[in-house]
Amino acid sequence: MQSIKFNKKIYTLEAVEKAIEEFKNLADFSLKEAGNYIEVKIDKIDKGVKNILPDEFANYVLGLMS
């Protein structure tokens, strides 16, 4: 399992949720708000994208912020 912590002051919850919606076919996502961070846990990642998915996911969320 991998996790990414998104800073709430930089990333919005809406953007993270939208990205999860887009990536849900490639892995299992769970979201939790902890203090100033939105923690996304990624599990059961599709084998074909296992190495790149967390970073691609983070990039996608950043793209939604622009």
Binding site: N7, K9, I10, Y11, D55, A58, N59, L62, G63
Partner: peptide, 13 residues
């Protein structure tokens, strides 16, 4: 975003 993975953190203020 197409060239590198970018992650932002810190205090925007």
């Amino acid at each position: 975003l197409d060239k590198v993975y970018i992650f932002l953190d810190g205090d925007p203020k």
